[in-house]
C-alpha cells in the first residue's frame, strides 16, 4: 500500500473551495427546510436538476442569459413551492421517516419525468461557458468559476445571516427551527415561515443550478444527484439541527471531496464515498448532534 503523495496546486485548492461554497449553499437550502419542517429533502437535487434543464432549454433556443437565468429561478422556485404544496403539506403530521420516504419518491418521480421529457442523453447548457476560462492571479492560473463560486457563496451566506439575524421573518424562522409548536403559540405564523423557507431554499437551488452548469454543462436526468447525496452526508456530519453547523458540514464535505478527488490518483480516490459515509455513520452513532455543534445543542431524538 503506497502512501498517497498529495499533489495540491492552487487550481485544485481554488476548485475545492469553490465546490465547498456551492455545497455550503445546498446545505443551507436543505438545512433551512429541515429546521422548519423536520423534512430531509432527498428531492433537493432534482430542484437543481430542473434549474439546470431550464438553463439548457434557454441556451438551446439561443436566448440570452438575461432570459435564461430568470427562467431558471422561476422554474426552481415554482417547483419548490409546488412540491411543498402538493406532497409535503398533506404529510406534515406524519413522522420524519414517512416524509423521508415521500421525498425519496418525489426525487425519483422528478428524475423520471426529466428522463421522459428530455431523454437520457442530456442537453448542453453553455450560457455561462466563458466563466470556465482561467484567469491569472499573481502568476497562478485559476478558473474564473472558482472565484465566482467563492464570492457568490460568501455573498449569499452573508445575506442569509443578515436575513436570519436582522429581520422579523428571520427571527420567526429561527424560532420555528428551534421549537415549532412553541413558536406558533407565541404568534409566529406557521404558513408564512414555511413559505419563506421553501422559497429561500428554492432560490438557493437555482443559484446552485447556475454554478453547477458552468462546471458541468452537460445536463442529464441524474444531474446533481451525487452532489445532493454528498451534501446530505455533509449536513449530517456538521449537525442537522443548526444552520451554521449544517453549512460548515456542507462546505467541509465539498472542500474535502474536491481536494482529495483532485489530488489523489484515481485508484485511491475511488473509495472516497465509502470513507465519507463511514464518517457519517460514526458521527450519527457518537455525536448525533453533529461535529460542529457544542455540547448541549445535540439533537434530541431518542426513542
Amino acid at each position: 500500500m503506497t502512501v498517497a503523495v498529495l499533489n495540491i496546486d492552487w487550481q485544485t485548492l481554488a476548485d475545492a473551495t469553490g465546490l465547498g461554497a456551492i455545497y455550503a449553499l445546498m446545505a443551507v437550502g436543505i438545512g433551512l427546510v429541515f429546521g422548519v419542517l423536520r423534512l430531509v429533502n432527498f428531492a433537493y437535487g432534482q430542484l437543481v436538476m430542473a434549474g439546470a434543464y431550464a438553463l439548457a432549454f434557454a441556451s438551446e433556443h439561443g436566448w440570452s442569459l438575461w432570459v435564461g437565468i430568470p427562467l431558471c429561478f422561476a422554474v426552481v422556485v415554482t417547483l419548490s413551492m409546488l412540491m411543498d404544496r402538493i406532497v409535503f403539506r398533506p404529510l406534515r403530521t406524519q413522522s420524519p421517516a414517512v416524509m423521508l420516504v415521500a421525498t425519496f419518491a418525489v426525487a425519483f418521480l422528478l428524475q423520471s419525468i426529466a428522463l421522459l421529457w428530455f431523454g437520457p442523453l442530456g442537453k448542453i447548457a453553455s450560457s455561462l461557458a466563458t466563466l470556465n476560462q482561467p484567469v491569472t492571479v499573481s502568476g497562478v492560473d485559476i478558473r474564473k468559476i472558482a472565484i465566482v463560486a467563492i464570492g457568490l457563496g460568501a455573498l449569499c451566506l452573508l445575506a442569509l445571516v443578515l436575513l436570519l439575524g436582522r429581520t422579523r421573518v428571520g427571527l420567526h424562522m429561527r424560532a420555528a427551527a428551534m421549537d415549532f409548536r412553541t413558536a406558533e403559540l407565541l404568534g409566529v405564523r406557521a404558513g408564512r415561515v414555511i413559505g419563506a423557507a421553501v422559497v429561500i431554499s428554492g432560490v438557493l437551488a437555482a443559484i446552485v443550478a447556475v454554478m453547477l452548469t458552468v462546471q458541468n454543462p452537460l445536463v442529464t436526468p441524474d444531474f446533481a444527484l451525487r452532489d445532493t447525496i454528498l451534501v446530505l452526508a455533509g449536513v449530517v456530519l456538521g449537525g442537522m439541527n443548526r444552520l451554521v453547523p449544517a453549512t460548515l458540514g456542507g462546505f467541509a464535505i465539498g472542500f474535502a471531496s474536491g481536494l482529495l478527488g483532485g489530488a489523489l490518483p484515481t485508484n485511491q480516490s475511488q473509495y472516497l464515498p465509502s470513507f465519507l459515509f463511514a464518517a457519517v455513520i460514526l458521527v450519527l452513532l457518537f455525536r448525533p448532534g453533529g461535529l460542529f455543534t457544542r455540547e448541549g445543542q445535540q439533537a434530541v431524538e431518542r426513542v
Binding site: 430531509v40 413522522s95 420524519p96 421517516a97 423521508l100 446530505l232 452526508a233 449530517v236 442537522m240 457519517v280 455513520i281 450519527l284 452513532l285 448525533p288 431524538e301 426513542v303
Partner: peptide, 9 residues
C-alpha cells in the same frame, strides 16, 4: 439509531 438517523445511516 431510529427515525431519521437510522434512515440516513
Amino acid at each position: 439509531l431510529s427515525g431519521l438517523g437510522a434512515g440516513i445511516a
